[in-house]
Simulated assay, not measured.
Amino acid sequence: MVAVPVIRTRPRRGDERARSVATGGPGDPLVDRFGRVHRDLRISLTDRCSLRCTYCMPEQGNEWLARTSILTVDEIERVARVAAASGITTFRLTGGEPLLRPDIVEVVRRLSAIRTPGGAAIDLAMTTNGIRLAELLEPLRAAGLGRLNISIDTLDPVRFRELTRRDRLDEVLAGIAAAAASDLRPLKLNAVAMRGVNDDALIDLVDFALAHDAQLRFIEQMPLDAGHTWDRASMVTRSEILDALSTRWRLTPVPGRGGAPAEKWALDGGPATVGVIASVTAPFCGDCDRLRLTADGQLRNCLFSPGEYDLVPALRGADRTATDTSVDAVLRACIAGKLPGHAIDDPSFLQPTRGMNAIGG
């Protein structure tokens, strides 16, 4: 018997989940009701982090997921293989901070061995804060990691300490230097643009990225902090970011974005580029091809979704012979319930209960 997907949700006006129907079966493409074909699975490995960024987590009082609820390597691999069989071609490992997971190299080794139905290798990427990267980069590379995104919001030690509540900038910079010296490309550096924190240093961040053969990607601050303190009025917008960069470089839009979250601009004609992820002021929901798996086995069809689809019964239920079919059924139910957009500008929008560290970036 195929497990019935369990949906954990809070109601939202305009939610069409009740009218959604999962279609297809194992091996069929993961296509939602709006024709979006899903090819990207973000896999969170832990909700824990070595930093306490103000836009993500409170400094104290965090309620961590129970250790027993965290998916094992076998369970992660099982979900990934089912997803790859139905057209997922990219796995991105996230957290929290994925490098805090003791078996991170084994996770990478297992996932890098997965192939698409046509025999192609999976695109395996990781988003990290860079702490521990200098010591783990070579084992991760040998295990099959393909590329990296590293978060760096400021280069100023005092601002870094105030923003992250930790004095670990030197470790982050060492991780970035190690990545730049490796052959993992493209290398991307992520920076959340924040008023009064780094909005006066956007050009400096791009210069730093260029010096490390990396692309800087600015991210509009999103309503995903665990403390629910996000204020749109204090957010640095896509338009403001581009205006600031235009004082230094001639920006030319790069075509062919596809389902990528970042718009790219060539700097002075290229080849160097800069990206902007404008989830709030210029959402790209119409081309979204992503699903998210939380560290405790919940599927999410949108970063801002109020609902989750529980994979744990399919992974840990008694009927192991139906596991793959059951996992596929939950994947398809999640896809079928996906809305056309995140509706941040709608009065009915509810910020997710989980913070970014527990959802996975």
Rank of each mutant, 00 (worst) to 15 (best):
R110H: 13
I131M: 02
P223N: 06
R354Q: 09
D183H: 13
L291T: 12
V276F: 13
H342S: 05
R165F: 01
R109D: 10
S20W: 05
R48Y: 02
A66S: 13
L145G: 03
D319N: 02
S326T: 09
L216N: 11
F218A: 10
D123T: 14
A343H: 05
A18Y: 01
T164E: 11
I70S: 12
R17P: 02
E162Y: 06
G269F: 11
V107E: 10
A84K: 09
L100D: 01
L133V: 03
V276C: 14
V276P: 14
R39E: 14
V330A: 12
R248D: 14
P98M: 04
E97R: 08
L350K: 14
S348W: 10
R17Q: 00
T94Y: 03
E263G: 02
P117Q: 04
G175L: 07
P139M: 04
R132T: 05
D153W: 10
A262T: 06
D346G: 00
V37M: 01
T325E: 15
D103I: 10
C302V: 06
G361W: 14
L136G: 03
A180H: 04
R250D: 15
L111S: 06
A233L: 07
R67K: 15
L163Q: 03
L267V: 10
G144L: 05
I344Q: 03
R195I: 07
T229K: 14
A121D: 11
D199E: 15
R159T: 14
Y55N: 01
T321S: 08
G118S: 05
H228V: 13
R185M: 07
P223M: 09
P139V: 04
D289V: 12
T94P: 03
I104S: 06
T229F: 14
V172F: 02
L30D: 05
P139G: 03
A180V: 08
P340E: 05
A180M: 08
P352F: 12
E263C: 05
R78D: 08
V236S: 02
S239D: 14
I241A: 03
A262K: 00
V21Q: 08
A113Y: 09
L189R: 07
A266F: 11
I219S: 00
V330Q: 07
G297K: 04
R217K: 07
L315A: 11
R257F: 07
G270C: 13
D40F: 15
H342N: 00
A214F: 15
L311P: 02
E59A: 10
F91R: 02
C334V: 12
R115I: 06
A318N: 08
L65C: 08
G144K: 02
A322M: 11
V105S: 01
R115A: 00
L93F: 00
H342A: 06
S239N: 14
L202T: 02
I43S: 07
R248I: 11
L41D: 00
D15E: 06
P340Y: 09
A125Y: 12
G144H: 01
S279L: 08
F349P: 04
P283Q: 13
L293N: 01
M222A: 00
N198L: 05
K188M: 03
A22N: 08
D207W: 08
L184P: 06
V82N: 12
Y309P: 01
G61P: 02
M222Y: 07
R78F: 11
R48N: 10
I152E: 08
I241V: 07
F218L: 14
R147C: 07
C53P: 05
